[in-house]
Amino acid sequence: MSRVGLVVVSHSRPLAEAAVTLARQMLPSAEVTVEVAAGTDDGGLGTDAVAVSAAITAADSGDGVVVLMDLGSAVMSAETALELVDDDVRERVVLSSAPLVEGLVGAVVVAAGGADRDRVAAEALRGLAPKQAHLD
């Protein structure tokens, strides 16, 4: 059984923490590592590549990390963070283009079930599918 870690990168710490709360609500007793790197250190809106790299390292147990992010600088800070982590950690990280909230919910559920990194990343990417099936 894999222990894939998740990282949430957002401009807003409240947004990131609420997304994590929403995702964990699915499985209140599950042990899934979800690290948050969000907001500036003075409490404002923004992203910090050094904080993202620390979150990735903290989330990594050796089985890989899937990083979900909101928009704009969150994407570029996540890419920059990959340059700042150790080489062996970097190989295990996937930066996901999944929608943050929907992707995180799906990823947490399958990560809690022991899925491997690629399976967790794939589940995040299909996060919009239930909503699309309902509305489209």
Partner: peptide, 21 residues
């Protein structure tokens, strides 16, 4: 560069930070 990627907050952080790095 390292200071900018950490402290700017917006997209100009990774952009100017990467420029200096």
């Amino acid at each position: 560069g390292m200071t900018l990627v950490s402290k700017v907050g917006g997209a100009s952080g990774p952009l100017y930070g990467t420029f200096f790095l």
